[in-house]
Design a protein around this nucleic acid. Structure first.
Lengths: 250, 250
DNA sequence: TGCATAATACAACAATTGATAAGAGCGCTC
DNA sequence: GAGCGCTCTTATCAATTGTTGTATTATGCA
């Protein structure tokens, strides 16, 4: 176990260590860099399209989305990020943001100046590879979202999103299994779920009612139980292979 | 001008040089690696989901798609690639393919063994950065496609795809401007356009009829003219900023 | 605790898109 | 150059999803 996996930046280091084998002194350096943090409410923009950030954010707690807002005001969420993520790392490569990064829940965010990140990458080239791998994983997830948005019905889309969320949460110890059932907290509102699946919130509501009626999910407020994950996965055509690069070793 | 930009691997080197500043000896080495090539017909799979490639492909001529086929047999194209692209470079990072790479037209493909690519990256770390940037650009395009699939009407989606294709082609000298009009060859069938936009081919046909009737595009077979690009872009909510990392210097 | 705000549930109707079918045009192969 | 297959076009009808509106229930804050 590398050092500092339990500090506020613990999940951040845990994720990076899955993507590449970081030497201990790099972990320590990264850990020290995110000492400062801010707490934000839900639906708060961290970075806006058009911004030119001079630092990278690290999600320490809470859920965050990338999203773009169209001319007609319709918002599309293009990805979800939990604690440990560095969603604007690409600002090191492309100075101008092409999308917004917005909190979905109350969130704790740390920041690392670009200059520090760059010099760390000079000293530890493996860090560059870890972030390239992170970008590549994100691209695989984005591809699956394209399939979800373009090739699945409303109920399938909703079910697929729940499967992905449950799987990613479980891998980081944030879902509990009992038999083939999986329980977890899913704090998104139906409006946010609609923005992620390209559906109206009313239709998300209909789809969730269908999934509940079929017995595939149980739910009280934001606590979900997928009663039979293999069954829901089969229904949603969910194959977790595209997520595997993120999976921590057991 | 770096050497060898005019050989069969010319567009490949041109694209990479946009993404990072490659030294001349690296360009030469890359150029020599893609000496061998194969010609394939349309709708031919280059790599399949589940494969574990031991080499990377370089598109030398023709159009190629990434795509996934769902349980019900419905295919979703998740990205389009022209000559110069290296669509399975991520197999260096993640051994198992999570999607198919399939030709859309007659295509000429070169191959570079992973081992050679890896040793080149050791010698020239800047190459790693160029490919990271390439992955990051692809992610930006995938995000915009998610918006297209999830948040735009059928006609807007179709128009947006044409705007993106026209812009990318023009940047590599494959579209000709006259005034605010832009002409180019677009060899995709309506079925393929449907797979890229998540629409049925019949509805693609309807959407194109609408665009022709409105005067925003003219078309005979596979030759397209966007009569007034700013107007079509405004209609489709197309903002080319997300593509800019790929734009060659004038 | 109570009030204001936000989220959920659900119904009725409208709009968009998909499915099916059938004819016409084009290009490729033998 | 004749035939075959694929693509394009168009129409009709069906299915899915969006919109609007209104209760109802939670939640956060004073």
């Amino acid at each position: 176990m590398a050092p500092h996996f339990n500090g506020p930046a613990g999940t951040f280091l845990q994720r990076l260590n899955v993507l590449a084998d970081l030497p201990a002194d790099l972990s320590t350096a990264l850990h020290d860099l995110v000492a400062n943090s801010r707490c934000l409410g839900a639906n708060h923009d961290i970075v806006l399209q058009g911004d030119q950030p001079s630092q990278c954010c690290v999600i320490l707690e809470g859920w965050v989305s990338r999203n773009k807002v169209g001319a007609a005001g319709k918002r599309q969420i293009t990805s979800l990020h939990f604690s440990g993520a560095t969603p604007d790392i690409q600002s090191l490569l492309h100075p101008v943001m092409d999308h917004n990064i917005t909190t979905l829940t109350k969130t704790k965010v740390g920041f690392i100046p670009h200059s520090h990140m760059r010099s760390l990458m000079e000293r530890f080239p493996v860090l560059k590879e870890a972030f390239w791998k992170d970008t590549s994983l994100e691209l695989a997830i984005a591809r699956e979202w394209e399939v979800n948005l373009g090739a699945r019905s409303a109920v399938e889309r909703t079910a697929h999103l729940f499967c992905e969320i449950a799987t990613r949460l479980e891998w980081f110890g944030r879902a509990t299994r009992s038999g083939s059932a999986l329980s977890f907290e899913m704090p998104l509102t139906q409006i946010q779920l609609g923005e992620a699946t390209g559906l109206s919130s009313v239709h998300i509501n209909r789809s969730m009612r269908t999934l509940r009626a079929s017995g595939m999910i149980e739910q009280t407020r934001h606590w979900f139980t997928i009663s039979d994950l293999p069954k829901l996965a089969a229904f949603a055509d969910f194959n977790p292979d595209y997520l595997i690069p993120e999976r921590p070793q057991d």
